[in-house]
Structures are given as structure tokens and as C-alpha cells.
Design a protein around this nucleic acid. Structure first.
Lengths: 231, 231
DNA sequence: GTCTATAGTCGGATAGAC
DNA sequence: GTCTATCCGACTATAGAC
């Protein structure tokens, strides 16, 4: 047993670079940037330790590549619906009813991806760490993911309440709340599954969460329009 | 300059133990458990490195003490209102209107603490890290903080919708959403302040967030009661 | 109880054979 | 491009003077 390279781990396939990125996704997410060691990552990916400096210039370069991979993948999921809505809005400002339909469709997709997709757990751990202590990589996450999502929701909210075309500050805050309540299912997953006695999010649970989030969204929009006076 | 001990940092006062806990709060939160070094913590607290093994048995013991400090402090803030509501409910099941008042009061306090208090940023970074990769300390956080809060909100929601005394699974999910949208202001603070172009949460912003969260809550409850049919 | 000095361990990066 | 062996620095913890 002179050979220290492990049998390639189950998920490790493809080029050395790809294997390192996949492994980095897991290990950086689980342990954080400093907690992760290059040895762990190399082992998990079934590649040699020296491949990290060779391919990415070092641990930091690998981390940057992992972030880029996250952004590219998520955008691949979201771009179709973002483009669809943008195209619709470019034609003419949608009436409140139609804007609400678009919003519900968008939020529904977001729930399915954030709660139900198999990549989301791995991605979100890293994103959340960046929220708490932003590194240089945070800029890319914000402009590549957060900003487009928030702006889309704010724009639709403005169309629904019908007062503005450019969302004002209060509308942006409300957009943040709508997105935040969905992200909570990721960032506080541990708390929720304990509280409900689950093992994790099965497809049944994803569907249930999807339904309840949309119900709650619809209820909030209904209340915002019909509640008597603002206090 | 043989003396390596720094002048005590601004916030470092009191006993050596307390100084270490305060410093640990900052450094563990900023860097994570592995990212934090005992040297950083000792420097920040203005105490000698060897004081950590001496007082807490080591880095891990200090971390446990920091978690305990968080739980104790937060409970000190929440216990009065929790006790008040529990006392009221013990008398008789409150009518939906009164239950809603109690819920709004509770959520308002939660917003003020989570968004507006000066301790919350330091506490929440550590709690969020525990959400993502729970250590042994997570049990204490869940049973000491999360569970009482979620159960209280779920119980009040059940009283508001009036169907059950014991909250069912759907009610618990809704409770999670209400709490999650508040916690989002902490865990995604970086995203929000960039999106709004803020520097941080001033007292003016806290008041605005307080108002909008309660409006949104009221709207959602109103919609849940008055929306025609569930889809 | 608090300090200095140091032991022992481990992580990231590199050199150089293949 | 990939491997082994190794260097160097940084970390936690301890020993022992005061």
C-alpha cells in the first residue's frame, strides 16, 4: 500500500479540474474556507494534492473556481424564466393580475430550485458563508445572483401594486422579504427538519413547501391590496 | 517592546473569562471555529494566550462557553414576553383577534432584537454557522432558542386560524415562514444593504423594517382568512 | 493566576523525478 | 500532467518560572 491515492470517490468523474471543483463544493461547504484542507479536497476528488496548485494556482484559486461554478449553474436554471419575464415586460407594463401570475411563477421556480434541487444544499452552504463573512468572491455572487433575483421581484411587485414603474425603497424591502422567506428553508433547514421531525426535504415535502409558500405569498399580496388602512 | 500583550481593546473589560468570551464572540463569528485562532482571540481580549486552556480547557471549551453566553443573553431578552404570552394562554384560549395581537407583539419584539439590537449581529453569525454545519453545540441552540420561538408562533397561529389548539404540520410550516422572513434580515444582511445602498441598520431603518414586517404579517393573516378558495 | 518559551502537529506550497 | 518527498510557517497546548 504505497499508493496513497484513494479509489476515486463515487461522484468523482471527469477531468481532474472538474473533480476538484466538485470536491471543493462539498468540502468548502461543509468546513468553510479555512476549515477545509487541500488534503481533504484532493482525497475526496481522488486526485493528487499537487494538482491543486498546478491547476488553480492554490487553494484560493480553487475556491474562486468553485464560486464561479455555482453562479454559472444557478444562472443556467434561472435564466430561462428571467428572460421570459423580461421579454414580456419589454413589450408593455403588465397589468397587476398578470404581474402577479409572473411573480408566482418565478417564486415557484425559485422554491423548487432552492428547496428541491439536489445541487441547492451544496451551493447554499457556500453562499451563506459568504453572506456572513464576505470574501473577494462575494461581489460575483451578489451581482451574478442576488441582484438579478431581487430586482426582478421588486419590479414585479411594483407592477402589482401599480403605483410605480421603478421600485421604491419600500417595494425593494418587500421583495427582500418574499425572497428571504424562501431562502429561510435553506439556511435554517436544520431547525425546520428538527421541528417537524423530518429526515430532509423529500419531493413530497418540496411540493408541500411550494404550495404553502405560494399560498402565503398570495395571501400577503391580497392583504396588501385589501387591508383597510396602513397603520 | 518585550511585552506582547496589547493594550486592552476597547470592549475588553471585566474578568479574564468575560474578556475571552466577548472576544470569542467576535472572532468565532467572523472567522468560524477553525478560522479563528486562539492567538487572535487572546489578542482581541487583551489577555494571555495561555489563559484559554487555563480557564476553559482549550479552544473547544471556550467555544462552548460562547454558545452558552449567547443562549443566556437572548433568553434574557425573550423570556419576559414568552412568559407573558404563556401566562395569558394558560388562563383560556385567546380569541383569534387577541391571539393576533399577541403574535404581532411577539414578532415586533423579535424584529427589534434581531434587526436592531447591538448584540444580534455578533450572535447571529455564530448561530448561522451552526445551522450550516451543526457542532455539538447545536443541540443547545435548538432547544434553548429555536424551539421555544417556533412553538410559540405556531401556537398563536393555531389560535388565530382557530381550527386547532395543537398546531398541525401546516401551521408549523407557516410559523417557520413568519420567523424565517425576520431572520432573513440578519442572515442576508449583506445582500440587503447592498441592494438598498445602506451602510448598515440604523435605528431609522430598524423602525422601517419593523413596520413593514408587521404590515406584511398582518396582510398575510388577513389574506389567509379572507382569500376565497385555496388552490 | 498570569506569564514566557517551547514542544508537537498539521496545513499549503514546491522541487524534481517520471 | 501527475506523482513523492519535503520545506516552512502557523496553530494548539503545555511546562515551568514568577
Amino acid at each position: 500500500m504505497v499508493q496513497t491515492t484513494q479509489a476515486k470517490s463515487a461522484t468523482a468523474t471527469g477531468t481532474t479540474s472538474n473533480r476538484l471543483i466538485e470536491a471543493g463544493l462539498d468540502i468548502f461547504g461543509e468546513c468553510g474556507y479555512t476549515g477545509a484542507t487541500t488534503r481533504m479536497i484532493a482525497d475526496q476528488g481522488g486526485v493528487n494534492l499537487a494538482a491543486i496548485p498546478y491547476h488553480f494556482g492554490g487553494k484560493e484559486g480553487l475556491y474562486g473556481a468553485v464560486i464561479k461554478h455555482i453562479i454559472t449553474t444557478v444562472r443556467g436554471q434561472l435564466d430561462p424564466i428571467l428572460a421570459e419575464i423580461e421579454k414580456r415586460v419589454a413589450q408593455s407594463t403588465p397589468a397587476p393580475e398578470e404581474a402577479q401570475e409572473l411573480l408566482e411563477k418565478f417564486l415557484g421556480r425559485l422554491v423548487d430550485f432552492i428547496v428541491g434541487s439536489k445541487e441547492a444544499p451544496r451551493f447554499s452552504r457556500i453562499i451563506l458563508r459568504e453572506q456572513m463573512s464576505p470574501s473577494n468572491a462575494y461581489d460575483n455572487i451578489y451581482t451574478g445572483l442576488m441582484q438579478p433575483i431581487l430586482n426582478m421581484v421588486a419590479m414585479l411587485l411594483a407592477a402589482i401594486t401599480g403605483t410605480e414603474t421603478e421600485p421604491d425603497r419600500e417595494t425593494r424591502l418587500r421583495a427582500f422579504i418574499f425572497i428571504g422567506q424562501i431562502m429561510a428553508f435553506r439556511f435554517a433547514r436544520e431547525t425546520l427538519i428538527r421541528n417537524l421531525g423530518l429526515e430532509g426535504y423529500s419531493s413530497g415535502e418540496t411540493a408541500e413547501i411550494h404550495r404553502i409558500v405560494l399560498e402565503q405569498t398570495r395571501a400577503a399580496l391580497f392583504g396588501l391590496k385589501n387591508l383597510p388602512g396602513k397603520k
